[in-house]
């Protein structure tokens, strides 16, 4: 017997395995980041002083980064749509774009961290910087994870397009769901850390 419902949907649930899997994973990610947001709120509510993000963080740079990450999300969903059109070359261009944007995001992030370190602003400086570095750092690790998966699917993993195209489209959709989630976390991190 082979494992069923890798490529096609199970009729009664309407889902293929990996789609249910990734949503379960994302649910656990919601709880992970949820716990961090909860901690942030608790610490801030109880703090005697807490700076506004815009006073000490670089808002223009973070705005650029927001735009970069949103763009990477669009190219991701476009790469999936290209596969539905059976246009493999276009798929690769878009997915390549996503990977590129992700790298740009990390480079900008690195500049931001570097500038903070230069001014002696470290996680131990205050609980504001502690939460800032921890949350953006964990988000950054998620970006790196996404880059690794996407590079695999862009390169060696894309061979599956010729052997099992239906399952490959599923894989891109699942990778996309993860990537959009990373984008979604940033959509909340950005205003909460930088703009308030």
């Amino acid at each position: 017997m082979q494992i069923p419902y890798n490529a096609v949907e199970r009729p009664d649930t309407g889902l293929y395995n990996a789609k249910l899997g990734i949503w379960l994973f994302l649910a656990s990610e919601v709880m992970l980041f949820g716990a961090l947001f909860s901690s942030l709120v608790l610490l801030r509510v109880n703090a005697t002083t807490w700076p506004h993000g815009w006073e000490i963080l670089n808002v223009p740079l973070a705005t650029v980064n927001t735009i970069v990450l949103i763009s990477s999300s669009v190219t991701m969903v476009m790469s999936w749509a290209s596969l539905l059109e059976k246009n493999f070359a276009k798929f690769r261009r878009y997915l390549g774009g996503t990977i590129l944007f992700a790298f740009v995001f990390l480079v900008i992030k690195a500049f931001e961290y570097g500038a903070k370190f230069e001014h002696g602003l470290l996680p131990s400086t205050s609980n504001f910087f502690a939460t800032y570095f921890t949350m953006t750092g964990l988000h950054g690790l998620h970006v790196i994870g996404g880059i690794i998966v996407n590079i695999y699917l862009w390169g060696p993993g894309s061979k599956m397009w010729t052997t099992d195209p239906a399952r490959f489209i599923n894989r891109i959709e699942v990778a996309g769901l993860y990537w959009h989630f990373v984008d979604l976390v940033w959509i909340f991190l950005f205003p909460i850390l930088y703009l308030l």
Partner: peptide, 19 residues
Amino acid sequence: PPLEAAGILQLMDRLAGTS
């Protein structure tokens, strides 16, 4: 996951000197 988050925060407290 919340314990994982707590674990990360405690690691930061121990290794990066956060509070």
